[in-house]
Every structure is written in C-alpha cells, then in structure tokens.
Design a protein around this nucleic acid. Structure first.
Lengths: 225, 225
DNA sequence: GGCCCCGATGAGAAATCGCTTAGAAGATCC
DNA sequence: GGATCTTCTAAGCGATTTCTCATCGGGGCC
C-alpha cells in the first residue's frame, strides 16, 4: 500500500515516513506543493498525508488539484491548532480528515487505517453523541439544539471524546491524542479544559455528560438522558 | 493495565510509551537494566517490553532476575536483527516472545494483546465470572445486571480475582498483584477491601461469591448459584 | 466448654485526586 | 502597539479513597 507524504519540514516528514514504513506501508515524500500535487496525480498512491502550509503551492490548492483528477483518493490534512480556517476550507475542498500538529503518531495511524479500510465511509464532517452535535465543516457545536462556542482546543478535545463515546479515556490517552507528542505529563491542562467544556455544555442545557472516573480518566456518556 | 518498557534509547522508549498509552495502557519506562529489574520486581506490571542491549545490566540478566520472582510475567524482548544468539538465550531464560528491531508498532501491539489475553478470556476488554461482569473499556461492573460502583482499588482487586476464578489466592499473591510486592505484609488492607467488595456486590444481589479459605486466602467462585 | 487464632468490621487519620480560580504567557486582531 | 482571546500553570480546597488500628466474633481444637 503506497502512501504519499507532502510536508516541507524534513524532520516531520521523516518521522512520519519511518513510522509508516515500519508499519509496512511504502512511503514517498514530497517537500513542496507542486511536487506533492505532481506525485499525487500519478495515481500511484492509495492515500495522501498533506501539510497545509507548504511552499510553492498551498495544501488547499493541492487538494483542489487532486480532486480535479480523483474524487476518492483519501487526503488527510495536517494543520496547526490555530489554523481553523484552513481546516474548514480544506474539508470543503474535499479533504477527508485532518489532524492538528503536534499530533500523536498513533492517532495518524488510526485515521489512515480507517480511511484505507473504508474510503469515503469515514467522514470527518460531523459527529453526534447524545444531545451534542459537532460539525467539522463549520466548526459549530450544538447542545440540545443550542449553539455552543468553543475555542480550538476545546473543540478538538470534545471531538476526541465524541469519537470514543462511553469509553473511559485515560489522561495520558487524551493528552496524547489532543495535545500531541510534547506534552508535560505532570500538567493539569486537561482538568482545566474538561472544566471549560463542562461549563459551556451545561450553559446550553443544564448539565454536562462528561463523567469523571476517579484515578482512571474521563468519559463522555452517550445515554445523555 | 500497566506495562513496563525497559529501553535505553529514549526516542524508542518514548515512541513505544506514547503508542501504548494511546491504546489505553498505563506505561512506565526504565532506561537501564538495574532500574528495569527493580521496577519489574514491584509486581505492579502486567507485562514487560525489554530491550536486550542495556547499560548496567543486560536484558538477559533482567529476564533471569524477573523469573526468580515471577514465573508468569510476560516479557517481550526487543533485539537487533543480528543478535539471534540473544533471542535463543532469552527464550531459554524464560522470555515469552521477541521482536527484532526495527519493528512495526502494530506488531508489538498484537504480541502484547496476545500475551495479556488470559485463558478463558474472550477479549482483553471484558471479563465475566458467574453473575459478575467487568468491562475495562467503560470501567463498569455489573452483578446480576445491576451496576456496581467501585473505586480504583476495588476495581483492580475484583479484576484480579476474576482473572483467576475458583483458584484459592493467597494474601501475598493478591497483595503482590494488586498492591505491589514490597508492600508491608503485616497489613490488613486486603481484608478490609474484600469486605468492601463483598458489601457492594451483596447490595446488588444478596450475597457475594467471595469465599474465605481460612489460613490460605480468598477465592472467587464462578458457580455463583 | 474454653481458648486461641484468624478474619471481619467500624471509626477515623492520612493521602490522593480532581475541581476551581486567578493570573501569566503567548497569539491574534485591529 | 494595545486590547482581547486563548492556552497553560500553579496553588488551595474539598471530597473521596486508601489505609491503619483496635476491637469484635466465630470456628476449630484440645
């Protein structure tokens, strides 16, 4: 299975390449948008991992170029946390999914597998758990029909919880997935953000369906009465 | 589920740690043989991932040390391709499995899952003994269909009993597995916790299937009438 | 029956965990 | 270049959990 990685920062490109090769994929790298688009158009690849900030041709233009040729080729975007506009535009242009840097490698792998297994099936467009709705295209969240305004971090955190409803997720697991590889294990950011989320969700509808499981982690309950 | 990673190359150790944490395991790292053996001996871990080439104490010696204490603790060796001699020696000394570097993370994960799966256990995510159900993913426990709320310690204790149904487990054995081996043997925490468990299980369904075997230990009966 | 051990139990001390709050540091937008 | 928003750190507090200790009870053995 061949994967194309388009990423101008060499260390990241290599990190991803080696990781994926160790998983048995065959990987090519491109280091700017033009090269990336040219390679993608060869039709040789089953999936593209695409940084959005690229020299010569932006990631968004690459997506547009790819979609002119190939409707189905899965494209996973890599973006900085702040670039929420790009995420929205990218998804509108036909990107299949996105990850915010710094990302956990395991998370990238999980997404890649999901998209290779059922191309087109996995949609990064919206999620619904209990009375919460989350839309990746517009970055809007609703609780019981009422709009909830979230910051970028809060949004990613909630999205991760919603991808694993009812599961107890450990702090390490969540920090890995949402904060990425260079987090400080002794931090309590996560607690603080859970607090923010709870407050905002409760403002919309009385209570928040995020349970604390002491000394184990957190859990988003779907049977949100 | 706690896993110990003994590996002196920090990047590899961290890569494995994060990957496993992202899968929901709780992971500690040791960066030389002495530290690794000391941690392994605490009895806190369900499995050890062990590099063979280590400072201070070689991986082979660590295996020997572990086996003096614990016959059953699964140990997965990591070796370089060239070190085939070490693989043979390691397996002779009681290692459970091995992988040659560079390895695919998915492969390591598969081996770990295989070794953690207990005989008679359907999947690694849940246990069923008599009328008790325990789910690791949601951390929910049910007795006769009714939910039972347990604290972290109670949960681990019950999980351990359920992994060894009908066996008489000595106090030392249980303290080893659930509390850690260097725990003060003169304590009666275990008795206290058995009491807590019995009460909570009985609340849900009249009686509790934990038998006391005088001057021997405790036993969870599966033929829970 | 009486004694002795082992285990059960209740009360309370100690430790731990997570929530909240306040504010510093960093990013972003006019 | 401020003002504002976001992200993160750190400390204090309260609740729960964990553990210790002392006492109680009951079975087995003489």
């Amino acid at each position: 299975m061949r994967i194309l990685v388009v990423e101008d920062e060499r260390p990241i490109a290599e990190f991803v390449q080696r990781g994926l090769e160790a998983e048995g994929y065959s990987v090519s790298c491109a280091y700017d948008g033009e090269e990336g688009l040219a390679l993608a158009r060869t039709g040789d690849y089953a999936l593209v991992v695409l940084d959005v900030l690229l020299p010569k041709l932006s990631g968004l233009e690459v997506i547009k170029g790819i979609r002119e040729d190939d409707e189905a080729l899965p494209v996973i975007m890599l973006t900085a946390l702040a670039e929420t506009d790009d995420v929205v535009k990218g998804l509108d242009l036909g990107a299949s999914d996105y990850l915010t840097k710094p990302f956990a490698f395991a998370e990238l792998l999980a997404r890649i597998r999901a998209h290779l297994r059922q191309p087109g099936q996995v949609s990064a467009t919206s999620l619904e758990v209990g009375r919460i709705n989350l839309d990746f295209r517009t970055r809007e969240v609703q609780r019981a029909g009422r709009g909830v305004k979230l910051t970028a971090r809060e949004f990613e955190l909630l999205a991760y919880l919603m991808r694993h409803p009812d599961q107890v997720l450990s702090r390490a697991q969540i920090l890995n997935a949402v904060w990425g590889y260079d987090y400080d294990p002794g931090t309590n950011v996560l607690d603080v953000y859970i607090g923010y989320l709870r407050r905002k969700l409760a403002e919309a509808d009385g209570d928040a369906p995020i349970q604390t499981v002491r000394s184990a982690g957190y859990r988003l309950v779907s049977a949100d009465a």
